[in-house]
Write a protein that binds this DNA or RNA. Sequence first.
DNA 1: CCCGGCGATATGCCGGCGATATACCGGTCG
DNA 2: CGACCGGTATATCGCCGGCATATCGCCGGG
Lengths: 230, 230
Amino acid sequence: MASEVRVQDRAAPLAVVRRGVHSQSEEAYLRIRDRILTLDLPPGSLVHEARLREELAIGRTPIREALQRLAHEKLVRSVPHRGTFVTDVNITDLARITEVRVVLEGHAARLAAERCTAADRVAIRELLASLSIGASDQRELMRMDQAIHRQIYRSARNSFLESTLERYFNLSLRLWYLVLDRQVRLREAVEEHVALLNAILAGDGDRAEQTMRTHVTGFEREIRAALVER
Amino acid sequence: MASEVRVQDRAAPLAVVRRGVHSQSEEAYLRIRDRILTLDLPPGSLVHEARLREELAIGRTPIREALQRLAHEKLVRSVPHRGTFVTDVNITDLARITEVRVVLEGHAARLAAERCTAADRVAIRELLASLSIGASDQRELMRMDQAIHRQIYRSARNSFLESTLERYFNLSLRLWYLVLDRQVRLREAVEEHVALLNAILAGDGDRAEQTMRTHVTGFEREIRAALVER
DNA sequence: CCCGGCGATATGCCGGCGATATACCGGTCG
DNA sequence: CGACCGGTATATCGCCGGCATATCGCCGGG
């Protein structure tokens, strides 16, 4: 153990050493994506590349790459020589996204139930513990929901499925932010989460899948109701 | 009509002006993707950016963008300052990909059965007609299979599902190319196609989904068998 | 035999150039 | 007088090639 070099010393040219290394493209992608999801960049708005460039204090290339990535994820739409716009939202897209999510999340829940390891079980029990405390506000609830779904994606042990679901989840997340002010009923959602996680812990794939499908479908119903009343 | 400038003169620096306009990025993406799928760039091999640059006679940016896109689709893996490699294939990935495809393609088939329009029906009948002729060689069969699946994606009337399935189909396509020399049994596949399309034409969602699931599962079994015997 | 420095290579990022599509605006015709 | 039309101005994009940097492989020295 002669070459004891602490990684923190040699890396970190600047300040941020969050978890792992972030290329500027990745950083730009995450930050712009967050702005879109949280509606800081509202649907339909023009994404001003030059403005982002000075706000994020980086060059054009990383931003270009981030926008392209977002375009492939259907979060922005790039019109040649017109500009890049945040994708608009509508009931139809909500339905289309949910259509896929119901099937995919359901299958992920089933796989998670069938495959989850001891480590997964520990993480899931922790999630259940946090759930029993209850969420103070809606944003806290969103974080919980996000953590639960991500855990299930991981437990499904399928990296393809995981990354696909991650993208669809983000699309849904934006819709949730859209109706954040409306107090959508979410007590049920919490209970569904508990039932869902318990089904996974019990290794009951059928029940996990069914519960997840109900959960996602119910989510759509709530969002849709809040959307149409706007 | 004073400014009569023929478009062919100013555009078309090279030769290919296929259908529609291709940006160089798109062109690079399609060509590199094709090379990967057809194993012209074999799994695990290093993707030499400079070589591609001179072979495609374009700059670095389009190639970079194409490679990033391929990386997000898990067709290449980019290791910082090491190089970009074509993603390796293994039985596990085949299983993981199929796992998602079974569910997604099945659902797409169901949706297609429920939603297909008159225009779709015409296209599907044409596909059935081509099928009755029969495929001469295996590559012809691949093209048929591809056309059928794409038609179903379109008929499902869900652009999100369509683009997701497109990506998974390409991942599977490469696996097919991998075992192309092995004469996998495919008579069944053709019959399945016929049954599948007929179920869709009949508007029988349940049967369409079930047939598609069988089809995709059977596909995996054949590929797997050919893969392990290598 | 092991270690440390050096060259080679590929990447991430940058800023600029030419091209292009839109918007605006003044002139002209109905 | 109003509407249309052609030309110009502008903003944005696609693409380019270069620079700085990080990593690996090699080779000579200890």
